[in-house]
């Protein structure tokens, strides 16, 4: 069942068409990976889906709900969408623990001031940080973490949100980039567990082995357009995909 649908989506920056008439859908409880050469519009797609950018035209719907194309950035969260960033975006001068707690806090001003679920949120944050191996770093400032740890902290935030039931659709923008093998395994395992838990995953990745290992469905973008989609092995063996993306 498609939980997230995009129809004829367009987004341009000046004279560059980053997304050009894209129509795809994302199935519930499946990992849909998006690949494509640099500049093909993958990150723009994630930015549009997470409402950090508004598309120029087209329709984005979640479970036949309202059109999200022109939503304010903070509304995507209320439709269960969360994300990681290609260029890691942490709250640098805040502790590792606070970086996770902040995604769990009540969104309403008064509720945030008189927070009633502090202990519960702390437990959720602890679980997320233990899963990613960062609990021992909880009092460190985020800015002092290594690159790999920073990537893991972004994943921990997503984990905490999904565990709290506030997120059902997760957009991972190159979560494995720059990670050493043990960390790659940790993140891959987390993505598999999220899928098992019924979460919908959109994964942008360049590592073909991981794409094959994790993906249920594969979308290939080129110059903002849909080049191919389908079963990963089938798509990756197509000649036009190999020429456009793999360059062989």
């Amino acid at each position: 069942m498609a939980i997230l649908k995009i129809k004829n989506l367009q987004k341009h920056f000046g004279g560059v068409m980053a997304i050009d008439g894209l129509s795809v859908s994302f199935e519930k409880a499946r990992v849909t990976s998006v690949i494509g050469p640099n500049g093909s519009g993958k990150t723009t797609l994630v930015n549009v889906l997470s409402a950090m950018l508004n598309a120029d035209s087209g329709i984005i719907t979640i479970s036949n709900g309202p059109d999200l194309r022109k939503c304010a950035p903070f509304t995507a969260h209320f439709y269960g969408i969360t994300r990681t960033f290609q260029e890691v975006r942490l709250f640098e001068q805040m502790s590792v623990l606070d970086n996770v707690l902040i995604v769990l806090t009540e969104r309403n001003v008064l509720s945030a001031i008189f927070e009633k679920h502090g202990a519960y949120h702390l437990q959720q944050a602890k679980t997320a940080l233990e899963t990613t191996g960062l609990w021992s770093k909880r009092i460190e400032l985020a800015t002092n973490l290594s690159y790999g740890q920073r990537k893991l902290l972004e994943v921990a935030r997503v984990l905490a949100l999904t565990a709290s039931g506030k997120s059902n659709i997760i957009l991972f923008d190159e979560p494995f980039a720059g990670l050493f093998p043990q960390m790659v395994k940790t993140v891959a395992d987390i993505i598999k567990e999220l899928r098992m838990a019924g979460k919908t995953i959109v994964l942008i990745e360049h590592n073909m082995d991981l794409i094959r290992e994790l993906s249920d469905h594969l979308i290939v973008m080129d110059a903002g357009k849909l080049l191919a989609q389908g079963e990963p092995e089938e798509v990756l063996s197509r000649k036009d995909v190999i020429e456009a993306y793999l360059g062989e």
Binding site: T75, H77, F78, R83, V109, I113
Partner: peptide, 24 residues
């Protein structure tokens, strides 16, 4: 308070804070 933590989040990265559902 949690409110204070969100304020710091706005200081550090307002766009990311919004992405996590806060009407900053």
């Amino acid at each position: 308070s949690s409110f204070g933590r969100v304020l710091k989040g706005i200081r550090e990265d307002e766009a990311a804070t919004q992405a996590f559902g806060y009407n900053t």
